[in-house]
Amino acid sequence: MNAPGPTALARDLVGCHSCGLVNRWPSTHTHARCARCHAPLHRRIPRSLSRSWAFLVASIMLYVPANVLPIMHVTSLGQVRADTILSGAEYLLLHGMWPLALIVFVASILVPLVKMVILAYLLVSVQRHSPSRRLDRTRLYRFTEFVGRWSMVDVYVVTILVALVHLGAVAQIEAGFGALFFAAVVILTMLAAHVFDPRLIWDDAVTRHA
């Protein structure tokens, strides 16, 4: 697997995003459409790296307020408590609900952080034409694409709590700005992963090989 055969790109072949048909596309032309479904064909996602970087940088910037600002304000009998993402997980842990605390910790804190680090690593490695562990990097990419969405769980928890607990003076939960920033971080990292073209990881190997 460390020495894969020539890519489709190298053989002037392009798979259709839409119907999966493999089209023959001489590399001399810049624009083409699928022979079967007439969807536009791309050899690689256009400007994949720069767009991915833009989304990633934005998400890193928003990650700070997402964790510092409270995601919800809990008013209970006149007392107002502000919960951040970290304190929410901590609360669950302190109340003995450690499986839940683990889920929240992994989904809300670990996953976004790991995802940003992985994306940054993938982008840097592609730009540097790094030849090492291409398969592992592809797997990492698939992992981030799959796991990234699950960070939204905290946003949904806030939504449900807000919907459920509005008992006036007894208990009232309001969403904080942290939740919005956090949702933005999740969406931006998803977009960053989405526009990143994993085929770029292999291109370098093929050109060298060829």
Binding site: H17, R149, Y156, V157, I160
Partner: peptide, 26 residues
């Protein structure tokens, strides 16, 4: 067909369900 493939990652009902569970337990 293209839209189905595109919309799929943004439909997060399964995550919402987990959120319901977490909120309920909380």
């Amino acid at each position: 067909l293209r839209l189905v493939q595109r919309i799929l990652p943004w439909s997060m009902l399964e995550i919402f369900l987990l959120g319901v569970l977490v909120a309920a337990v909380k």
